[in-house]
Write a protein that binds this DNA or RNA. Structure first.
Lengths: 238, 238
DNA sequence: GTTCCGCATACTGTATACGGTACGAGCCTG
DNA sequence: CAGGCTCGTACCGTATACAGTATGCGGAAC
């Protein structure tokens, strides 16, 4: 019986997937507007598929709709805090499950990703580091048998992806990420669920701090020349 | 600054909200098909708003699209296990936060809901019990300041809502629910975050058992007279 | 009686057209 | 020269039309 996937090959879906990938890789201009008619022209379709893709992305939090086109959301510090609160609840468990259920193919993908990440780190290639990071996450998330858990995580990760570029500019952060990845990788190889969860939680904490600092600096730079609201929370310890 | 909510009063949104409410309350025929042209006629619009609402509901897991209209998803036992795995991770923390941040207005809503639930339990009015249950959950979820956490939870709860009707038929389950609600209510009133989390986790465990049993019985009844074969396929990935 | 083909049907997906609304630019007025 | 009004433009939301495809049924062939 040929598995029926009726909504897998339509234009909306293809545009959605492509735009989402580009958003994940920060290939969409942060300040630019996304307008359905332009997207439609870009993909050679009518407005409707483009519109549906944009609405779906907005519904999933990848974009926000304004009266004048769609834009990438600007995360407030509270947004980051909220997202990481959820991530810290979900990802350690997911990592534990992945460590438990890791298949041979999953492990190979994980290895490929970490090899790539090491090479990227060695050559200070930030873009490559980002891509290998995405690949690593995709690999272990692919081993999570609970699909709802996996997709929920993936979405929340994507939502902070916009600031990821900024975090990896800092060499210190890169070192932390590299160490975190190695620790996770070892736990996965050992099929050590507990260690995977622990490493993941620590990784989350570190990532939250890094994201928070970067975003805070961005916000201050934005409102920099003008009045600077001196925030009471000085979380830039490390 | 007046927050821009440009997509709040359009037809798609209204149809979406109304259909979602009806789905939450199990007012949609479980076996019936939802077709855009029919929905459109029902709301007096063209196909497009209805279509957008249906696609959005499908994207969020409330419906699954087939080649012949949309239907409510049939949850497999694995689906229930997966959903509750996530819920058990999220809801205890959310309940703790709610207990910590509960405002006076939230508390009043909570009280109103539990009064209603008690009355419903006393009169064995299952439908009313369901509605008051929804109200209770809406009340404490409304006190969760982390909106992403709250909406994520709400969605997962809704996804198992379809089996909720079945669980409350059993008087024993009703007693468990009533006890759970009272325990939570007290924890909330006391602003006791730890107790709220603990009660919520226990409640989740009990609910999972109840849902699992009911769904299992349903599945066995379904495949009883007919040929055994078909494994229940569940929501599409998205 | 069973199987297979072809047609009618129903639903989805896409295109196009039209009306409404918000934002910005230019004009007019103070 | 500053501030408000008006008009143009850009974009959104909705309606309608058309095309593609899956499903189910009836009839023909074996």
């Amino acid at each position: 019986m040929p598995r029926r996937l009726p909504r897998n090959d339509n234009l909306s879906e293809r545009i959605y997937l492509d735009l989402r990938t580009r958003l994940q890789r920060c290939e969409i201009d942060q300040d630019g507007r996304l307008v359905d008619v332009e997207i439609a022209a870009e993909y050679g379709t009518s407005r409707m598929p483009a519109r549906e893709a944009l609405l779906r992305l907005a519904n999933e939090g990848y974009l926000v709709g304004t009266t004048r086109g769609f834009v990438t959301p600007r995360l407030s510090l509270e947004d980051i805090r909220d997202i990481f609160e959820v991530r810290k609840l979900l990802e350690p468990r997911a990592a534990a499950n992945a460590a438990r259920d890791l298949s041979r193919a999953d492990q190979d993908r994980l290895t490929a990703a970490i090899v790539e990440a090491r090479a990227a780190a060695a050559s200070d290639d930030i873009e490559r580091l980002i891509l290998s990071n995405i690949a690593f996450r995709a690999a272990w998330l692919g081993a999570v048998r609970n699909e709802r858990l996996a997709t929920t995580i993936a979405r929340f990760v994507d939502h902070v992806q916009t600031v990821r570029l900024g975090t990896l500019i800092d060499p210190k952060t890169r070192a932390v990420v590299a160490a975190g990845l190695e620790g996770l990788y070892r736990a996965f190889l050992d099929r050590d669920a507990k260690a995977a969860a622990a490493h993941m939680f620590d990784f989350m904490e570190a990532a939250e701090q890094a994201f928070f600092s970067v975003r805070k600096a961005e916000l201050e730079r934005e409102s920099g020349p003008a009045h600077v609201g001196r925030a009471a929370t000085s979380a830039q310890g490390g």
